Amino acid sequence: MNIHLVALFHLEDLKKYGFDPILQPLVNDLKVLETQGIQVPFSDTPLRCISQLFSVIQVTGDNLAIHGLFGTVESFSATYCCPFCLTDKTSLQFVFNEDNPDLILCTKELYTEHCNAVAQNPTLVHSFGVKRTCPLNALQFFHCSDNYAVNIMHDLLEGVVQYELKLLFQYLVRDSICLNILSERIQSFKYGYSERKNRPSAIKVDDGRNDLGLNAIQSWCLLRNTPLIFGDLVDPDKLLACHSTFDSNCQHCVLPNHNRWYDYEKKHQNQLAFHWEKVYFKRFLFGPVMHVLTSDLEGSKVARSLSNTECV
């Protein structure tokens, strides 16, 4: 994936002025690219030029930044925190399928309606999680309600994966081994040369949080090796079979090819995470979500060399 820096701004400026004035120069340039294009010479005939038109089709980033850019609530414990639907926080614990008759998906019309409601009522902080309009919606071919670049790094590797692993480890501590032995097994396991830099650090099982305190690559390493580390302690027909299914689904999330995912999921349709089925098959027409993984962006040399600065 090629990463080209087009804009920088300080976080303090964002807090003071908001996204609109900061991104306005970029939006203006993108509008020119959408309507006029640029002159690009052919490599074999340098004197010949054609006009190429460009636009934005999807925006990727970490969840907090995307919520801020799109004008939605930046608290993931808010009543309406889902970027894809209007399901409230309580109902999220019971709605697991987009075919649910009570589910209302986000659309351009609903987004505009919520933005207008906030604009007309100054006392209203947000309407169904929408606080303001997104500056990128001024573009001809982009609207934030059609953005389905889900974030594997934060949603899975730093989210659901660690939550599920923590439940598994808590079960092992209650049923089979003590916490010290569990930690020793994870630390002493021979992960191999290719995983020597990815081995998990000390995990946090009894701290009352939903994660293990690992970064994304450590979480990915631990998920794949958990059956080898603890396989002798658990009935493979029960708990580890469930873990294997979860691991397989995560493995298929990072496939670079749609067809391989589809061939697998035709046999496991009920195991897909909420919203992700339509993200893959009915909406995300721009390739597998592996290609919009934010770890490459966050780990780039430019991003690492800048502090208190946002890159676009």
Rank of each mutant, 00 (worst) to 15 (best):
V125R: 10
T72Q: 02
P227M: 09
L297H: 10
F84K: 10
D13Y: 02
D263S: 14
C250K: 13
L30G: 05
T112Q: 10
V234T: 12
V279D: 04
S55Q: 03
D232I: 14
P135Y: 04
K301N: 12
C253N: 03
R304G: 09
A303S: 11
A216C: 04
R260G: 14
P101Q: 05
L110H: 12
T107C: 03
L103C: 05
L14I: 03
I229S: 02
G37N: 01
T294P: 03
P256N: 13
V59H: 02
S55E: 05
I177A: 02
V118W: 08
P21V: 08
A117D: 10
Q162S: 01
L272T: 12
L156F: 15
Q58G: 08
N137R: 04
F142Q: 02
R224K: 15
E109H: 13
T79Q: 12
Y111K: 12
K31L: 11
L33G: 00
L11D: 13
V59Y: 00
V160E: 09
K301S: 13
K15G: 12
H252Q: 11
L110M: 09
L165T: 01
D175C: 12
H291P: 01
W261R: 04
R260N: 13
H10K: 11
A65E: 05
Y262Q: 13
G37I: 00
F284T: 04
W276I: 07
K204I: 00
S176K: 15
T133Y: 03
V289E: 11
Y171N: 05
P46G: 01
Y193V: 12
V6Q: 09
S244C: 08
N308D: 15
D296P: 03
A119D: 06
L139F: 11
F128T: 01
Q140G: 00
T309R: 08
N210H: 10
